[in-house]
């Protein structure tokens, strides 16, 4: 299971990437899925095992998030379930 984090702007996404790099927490970059918006946004996706570490790091670093989604694959298509 993977999770997707979206950010208020590209600077926040780059800042988030830098923090995860420093903490050596694995992640992957992907563009904002069309279903979540039309802007050319950058998102980070992380694996379930790293989720708690990522949330903790983002909280401590005060990363400006806009959303946090669970990535579900249904009939071969990805869906993004908003988490709270």
């Amino acid at each position: 299971m993977e999770y997707l984090f979206t950010f208020v702007n590209t600077f926040a996404a780059i800042q988030a990437q830098d923090r995860l790099d420093v903490q050596k927490i694995p992640f992957n970059v992907m563009p904002l899925p069309s279903s979540l918006g039309d802007s050319c946004g950058i998102c980070l996706r992380v694996k379930n095992n790293d989720l708690a570490d990522v949330q903790n790091e983002f909280k401590q670093s005060k990363i400006a998030l806009t959303g946090f989604y669970q990535i579900q694959v249904i009939n071969g298509k990805k869906r993004y379930q908003l988490c709270h």
Partner: peptide, 13 residues
């Protein structure tokens, strides 16, 4: 920095 993150995004796409 922007170029690197854009390329990662491109490869995912």
């Amino acid at each position: 920095k922007l170029g690197q993150i854009l390329l990662k995004s491109y490869i995912y796409s």
